[in-house]
Design a protein around this nucleic acid. Sequence first.
RNA 1: GUGAGCGUAGCUCAGUCGGUUAGAGCGACAGGUUGUGGCCCUGUAGGUCGCGGGUUCGAGUCCCGUCGCUCACCCCA
Length: 424
Amino acid sequence: MGERRISSVPGMQDLAEPEAGLWRRIERRFVETCRRYGLEEVRTPIVEYEDLFSYSLGKSTEVVQKEMYSFPEATGRRLALRPEGTAGVLRYVSESRPATEDVRLFYYGPMFRRERPQAGRRRQFHQLGVELICAADPVADAECVALQVDVLRAAGLGNFVLRINTRGDLGDINRVTQGLRQQLHPFLPELCPDCRRRYETNVLRILDCKRDGCRRIVGRTPEPATYLSDASRSYIEQVYAVLDRLGIAFRVEPRLVRGLDYYAHTIWEVTHPGLGAQDAVAGGGRYVVQIGTRRIEGVGFAVGMERLIIALQREGAGLPGRREIRVWLAAVGEEARAANLKLACQLRAEGIACLVALRFQSLKAQMRAAAKSGAELVLIRGDEELRRGTIRLRELDSGRERDLPAGRVLEAVRGVLGPLGGRA
RNA sequence: GUGAGCGUAGCUCAGUCGGUUAGAGCGACAGGUUGUGGCCCUGUAGGUCGCGGGUUCGAGUCCCGUCGCUCACCCCA
């Protein structure tokens, strides 16, 4: 048993300041935006039974076949770390919500996929997600897209592209799949090895291939839309019409494909030019999933947090400022330290962020620390102040100092800091 | 799963043709007369040179393997 160096697990990273502050801000704005659309929060477990994902996402999908972290429970039944958020939310709906109710939900948290890490791709990644559980209706789909756009704007993102397409219903999907197989069959030898594999596993993906040779061949096949039933065509046209009325800019992307089996009808993807190869910052669509005996329909989307952060940084978004410390309590001597801690707690009770040294330090060291913390005020207390029952208040910008009776300190601090009530 | 590029201090990096005790800047900590910050000066701590093997009198440096990181393929948010 050789000792192994302790490190974080590949593809799973620590999140610390100042980035953590940016995450907090984005999550807060996400929640606010969702609330304006009347959504409720749901937090589902990170671990589910593996079958939930294989059935809902599709057994042959890449995610289920080779990207899931799964392991047997003591009983032998297999568990899995969730690779995406929708399945768990729908499981919750099937267990806890009446089938007749429309449900509007949002969630956020970590997801796990065993992929090779890359720019904008981690093994633990985080999504902000929304699910509107409701029957197929173009207006519902359009509202979901509107919320998608609002969520990204609220996060501060400007420069994204919304690409929309439809998969049609299950009948359409079958017709497209079969039709494409027929059309592509003669060209099979000319397709790249990946596409020859896709021909069997996931024909639609061939539409997405980046190789010139494959693109040329795909260009000669009819667009998937030609296989759509009249009803499906009319459905997506209505979605587009409502989006136009909302003034939402989007591009119809006839070759846009999604990788999970549950999608039907409207699908979309949001890309960002700053992202590199993994350029989808968000994606969503309408879906139908069978959970046990219940068939659940809805429309939803997920935003990739890590990618959103990258995109924001490419747009030059700044990180939030440093800590919110406003007062530093400096002590000379142990007696004064203890007295300061008590005062610090009183200040904190009033909402004033303040710090005391965690160990014995010279006054000089404490002053340095105070300046570095960004505090505006230092309260100094030593033997002399203890004897006289005073505290020295120093304003760091001006260097002005005055001695105050200890009982007056709270009032004086309030006066100097001005109206409280939290900085943004 | 496949391919390419990179691994030297907390961070950014230097390290000559293979040659002595591996360096700098920033950061951290401490000091610069009594109890006073920023600037400045001085000092201190911090390194299994990713890890293992090989070549060599001698390896941070060359070779092989391995692990990790990064980017791309694949796939997806």
